[in-house]
């Protein structure tokens, strides 16, 4: 199945709950609301025509231009995206599902946006979600064990946010 068909079958199933789609992109994707994510993922995994049983990657992308001069020309509003790359073992096709989130929950800095976890659908999501939480700062609701995975437990901040400030010192070892 190619990407327009997948998007069409998703729209037939969910109707207006598919927020938007972009089929002329290099990797065609649909955007869904975080509240619908688990349902959409279950459909993508279990529908016999789709059968997306491989979760390749979850990535968090932070859209923010720090330079106030460049910000109006940046071409995007500050926001955060969580991107799910899926592929299918029996049908050998790929698809992308995206979530668009505010950078901070209710614009309160430090309050992470919340996304439902898809660990119940794909076991691979376990570590990937931990990594996105660790580096990009997204809270996955329903994850069995959401801890930092790459950085140490007492690390402050989420490094892949654009406004992250590098530490000057860590446990007595100077930073630079």
């Amino acid at each position: 199945m190619n990407a327009p068909d997948i998007a069409a079958s998703l729209e037939a199933q969910f109707g207006p709950r598919i927020k938007s789609k972009k089929l002329d992109a290099i990797d065609p994707f649909v955007v869904v609301d975080p509240a619908d994510l688990v349902e959409v993922c279950r459909f993508l995994r279990d529908d016999p025509r789709l059968q997306f049983d491989l979760l390749n990657c979850i990535s968090g992308v932070d859209y923010l231009e720090l330079d106030p001069k460049k910000a109006p020309k940046a071409g995007y509003e500050p926001h955060l995206e969580v991107v799910y790359h899926l592929s299918s073992f029996p049908h050998k096709h790929r698809f992308v599902v995206k979530l668009i989130l505010p950078r901070w929950k209710e614009n309160k800095a430090g309050d992470m946006p919340v996304v439902p976890s898809v660990t119940s659908q794909w076991a691979a999501a376990d570590w990937h979600e931990r990594e996105v939480y660790d580096l990009s700062g997204v809270w996955f609701d329903g994850h069995p064990d959401l801890r930092r995975i790459l950085l140490s437990e007492d690390w402050a901040g989420h490094p892949l946010r654009k406004d992250y400030e590098f530490p000057l010192e860590y446990h007595g070892i100077r930073g630079r």
Binding site: N56, C57, S59, V61, D62, K70, A74, Y76
Partner: peptide
């Protein structure tokens, strides 16, 4: 896999 997001502002540095 590599996932590269190009910057909408004309730049050589990727966004992610």
């Amino acid at each position: 896999g590599f996932y590269v997001v190009g910057s909408p502002a004309k730049s050589m540095v990727p966004l992610r």
